[in-house]
Design a protein around this nucleic acid. Structure first.
Length: 218
DNA sequence: CTACCGATTGACT
DNA sequence: GTCAATCGGTAGA
């Protein structure tokens, strides 16, 4: 069966492991029988304990209730007139989650272009707010069960894409815990957000050529 | 009720 | 590179 959803056991593990392993998986959205699919190329872990950047750091509120629930559900929150999509991880009571920051558009590109009001592939789902717009994810999906395979889920790709190097960096946009390397992304992937040159894990300071202003494809 | 502030984006120097 | 629009969530009076 194509695009069968990852089981709950996938999410019921350490949030950092889940974040890393979500790279390369497929984000699938179904609206009125139409599929929108993208390959996850960037994700961030938000720890269930001792992470001041996590919305749950100061306890449970109306907004972050989904994070306190069982793993394998969505945590969707609004910010700056946009939405951000997370996958809740670890057992219920441990408020950890993985923020999906970018996907490579694969299927349903026309729908994404319509929702995003741009034709530019690279701009369809690069960044958490854009991703939600492209995939028609809003507050109605907060708490939604990602293992059902009906409206929104994550699937294993049929044929794994060419092996890609993973880079690890601090999380983008957070105002605390800058030191924690909890952002994971595919190296040299044009669909990854962020503005800095990205250093492959384990590469020396001068080992990796920084990508400069050139836009490449358009 | 008011005040402050982002897990952002897009426009601009 | 820098910057502010924008609005719901949260805390506090």
């Amino acid at each position: 069966m194509p695009y069968s959803p990852l089981p709950r056991s996938f999410y019921d593990r350490d949030v950092v492991v889940v974040a890393r392993e979500l790279l390369g998986k497929l984000l699938v959205r179904q609206v009125r029988g139409r599929l929108t699919v993208g390959r996850i190329v960037e994700a961030e872990a938000y720890l269930g304990r001792g992470d001041p950047a996590n919305h749950s750091y100061r306890g449970q509120t109306r907004r972050n209730t989904s994070m306190f629930g069982p793993p394998g559900h969505a945590y969707v929150y609004p910010i700056h007139s946009r939405y951000c999509l997370n996958a809740v991880t670890e057992p219920a009571g441990t408020p950890s989650a993985v923020l999906l920051r970018a996907v490579e558009p694969l299927e349903g590109v026309a729908a994404m272009q319509r929702r995003r009001e741009t034709e530019v592939l690279r701009d369809l789902a690069r960044g958490p707010g854009r991703l939600c717009e492209a995939f028609a994810v809003d507050r109605a999906l907060d708490g939604y069960d990602l293992t059902l395979g009906r409206e929104l889920w994550i699937a294993e790709p049929d044929a794994p894409a060419a092996p890609c190097e993973t880079i690890v960096t601090p999380r983008i946009g957070v105002t605390s815990a800058h030191d924690l390397p909890l952002r994971f992304a595919l190296a040299n992937c044009p669909y990854v957000s962020g503005r800095r040159s990205l250093m492959p894990l384990g590469a020396g300071p001068l080992g990796a050529p920084a990508r400069r202003g050139g836009r490449g494809a358009r």
